[in-house]
Design a protein around this nucleic acid. Structure first.
Length: 596
DNA sequence: ATAGGGTTAG
């Protein structure tokens, strides 16, 4: 264990009287230094404390423990704790909190056990730190026994203890227990509510999160930036633009829109809903931008293929002295990958190391994707062979996609062989593997892979497109005839189809995967979900409003061409989000430059 | 006299 470098105790402590004189001043000074996190001054004061022998006073040692905790030096806290002659429950509480706050949850729990072993009764101040440590470690078992102990010692209804236990259960995936504890807190406050709402969002229970938020609004309860950032994230994930905008309005009224946390959620909301201008506006208005804020804006510009902006943002970050983290680099690599910038991507990839960040699985996957799409398949293979981590499914998937685009059937098949040696794979990769064998004319293996898929009962995800209209969401599947305005939608497609053909559009049926005859192919492709959604948008929205469509899968090549013609013939702006980026169609062109 | 709970970005 690392020994923190603390000042040595004095040889001759001063007399009793200066103890008393010093005592109050030192206390107040320590408190204010803790508040302002002024480390050098605190270290000076600490050595003064030792010279005058004040460290024997419990209150002083508590203050010192907290001072070092706030300055992220938990091992200094620990040493003061160990050297303290009398250890009250406050002393234990302070040191355990220092561990919990400073990424030493294992030590926090270890000291908690030691404290119980010393026959000390834990008080209400200690439980939150211990519950937090269990949450960080995802140790439901320990968390449950801590909760039990809190009940036994009569603190289960304390709002601090309760809120931290709610958070612990939510983070350990036991949302029902979290809710039970939440419901039983008699005087819930904004932290209890936010914690519960956040818990639901963590587990993807978006509706429940929104319901709780609505209840808080209806009951006129306190909410704050934590609450807002959680619910805005829900809106972003489900692309509920109208609701998100209304909640943005509420943030504005309450001034929480200036918080960086709320700001990053808002940027992500606007971006995910296809309104990139809104994202920039929010970003510009946040006075103090933290790392999350920069990353949110970076990923937004990457998704919308505003590549120059993205790379410029990165430069601005560097000159503002903001240290990029692994997410920042992921965003920048996405930006390069979406624009096919191979050299730039490689440059940023190597820049990571200079910042002391070890590339993770996702960074490698993006790099392999970038190289693969650019046709540099051998370089991609080299990356995979030489990287220090085990290749994941997304990394293999990226390589297979590259092989498919550049028609390297041999490499694809050999990759498939390699992947199968590693054991069972997910359904998404199965499809790629089966296609790889089929393309290499190895039909037996292809059939075998398809059979494996069938045996496991995995179905391909149904392609869906959806459009928001006010507070309503209209969803379409391919060939869908269930929508109320089906007749008008198909008529619009007919009418548009004629214009498109006059403008030079020819359907490319090679994108239909199923084995059907040619005429049928033509029919299927004409009514892909995104086209129905575009037609709905054309007959629903006023001409100057862009039509925004969300899609769960990648757009097929022919629909991409078709929508270009649709934008030209209708004179409308059409924005389509597929599974990982945005396409903005205008006047017969798409922002992706046909690279996606 | 003193200590404690929840967050953003993929």
């Amino acid at each position: 264990m690392l020994r923190p470098n603390l000042p040595k105790p004095p040889q001759n402590p001063l007399n009793q009287q200066s103890f008393e004189q010093n005592y109050r001043d030192v206390c107040n000074l320590l408190l204010s230094l803790t508040h302002s996190r002024s480390l050098p001054k605190g270290l000076q004061l600490h050595s003064h404390v030792l010279k005058s022998g004040l460290q024997t006073i419990p209150l002083i040692s508590h203050h010192l423990i907290n001072f070092y905790s706030k300055n992220q030096l938990p091992l200094h806290s620990r040493q003061i704790f160990e050297e303290a002659s009398r250890k009250s429950s406050t002393t234990w509480s302070s040191v355990i909190s220092s561990f919990a706050q400073n990424e030493l949850p294992v030590l926090a729990i270890e000291y908690f056990r030691r404290m119980l072993g010393a026959q000390l009764r834990p008080d209400d101040h200690i439980y939150p730190s211990v519950a937090k440590s269990c949450a960080i470690l995802n140790r439901l078992d320990v968390g449950q026994s801590v909760h039990c102990l809190a009940v036994k010692t009569g603190y289960e209804f304390d709002v601090f203890v309760g809120s931290s236990v709610v958070d612990m259960y939510a983070k350990c995936g036991e949302i029902r227990d979290a809710r039970k504890v939440f419901d039983e807190i008699p005087e819930k406050n904004v932290v209890s509510w936010s914690g519960m709402i956040y818990g639901y969002t963590q587990l993807g229970q978006d509706e429940e999160a929104l319901r709780l938020f609505k209840q808080a609004m209806v009951e006129n309860l306190d909410v704050n930036d934590f609450t807002f950032s959680s619910v805005i994230r829900v809106c972003g994930n489900s692309t509920l633009f109208e609701l998100g905008r209304q909640i943005h309005g509420l943030c504005f009224k309450t001034n929480f829109d200036l918080s960086s946390f709320v700001g990053s959620s808002l940027v992500s909301l606007y971006s995910k809903c296809g309104v990139i201008e809104g994202a920039y506006r929010v970003f510009d208005e946040i006075p103090v931008k933290n790392l999350g804020m920069w990353n949110a804006m970076l990923i937004a510009s990457a998704q919308h293929v505003h590549t120059d902006n993205a790379l410029d943002l990165f430069k601005q970050m560097e000159s503002a002295g903001m240290k990029p983290n692994f997410i920042t680099f992921l965003c920048v690599l996405y930006a390069c990958s979406h624009a096919g910038l191979v050299e730039k991507g490689q440059y940023y990839f190597s820049l990571m190391r200079e910042y002391g960040i070890e590339p993770g699985e996702q960074h490698y996957a993006t790099l392999v994707d970038l190289l693969g799409r650019a046709g540099k398949l051998q370089e991609a293979v080299k990356i995979i062979d030489e990287m220090p981590i085990e290749p994941t499914e997304s990394i293999w998937g990226a390589l297979l996609t590259g092989c498919r685009i550049h028609g390297d059937t041999e490499l694809a098949a050999s990759v498939a062989d390699r992947v199968f040696e590693l054991g069972p794979v997910s359904s998404g990769l199965h499809v790629l593997l089966s296609n790889a064998y089929a393309a290499a004319q190895r039909f037996e293996e292809a059939a075998k892979v398809r059979k494996m898929l069938r045996d496991r009962g995995v179905k391909k995800e149904t392609g869906l497109s959806w459009v928001e209209e006010g507070n309503k969401i209209h969803t379409f599947a391919a060939g869908d005839r269930t929508h109320m305005r089906t007749k008008e939608i198909y008529e619009k497609l007919e009418e548009l189809g004629e214009e498109m053909e006059k403008a030079g559009y020819v359907a490319d049926t090679s994108f239909v995967l199923r084995e059907v005859n040619r005429e049928e192919k033509d029919q299927t492709i004409r009514y892909h979900s995104e086209r129905l959604a575009v037609a709905f948008g054309l007959i629903t929205f006023l001409p100057d409003r862009p039509i925004r469509i969300m899609k769960n899968l990648r757009i097929c090549g022919d629909c991409h061409t078709a929508i270009k013609f649709m934008s030209k013939c209708s004179g409308r702006v059409i924005i389509v989000r597929d599974n990982n980026r945005f396409h903005r169609f205008e006047d017969g062109k798409c922002t992706c430059g046909d690279y996606w």
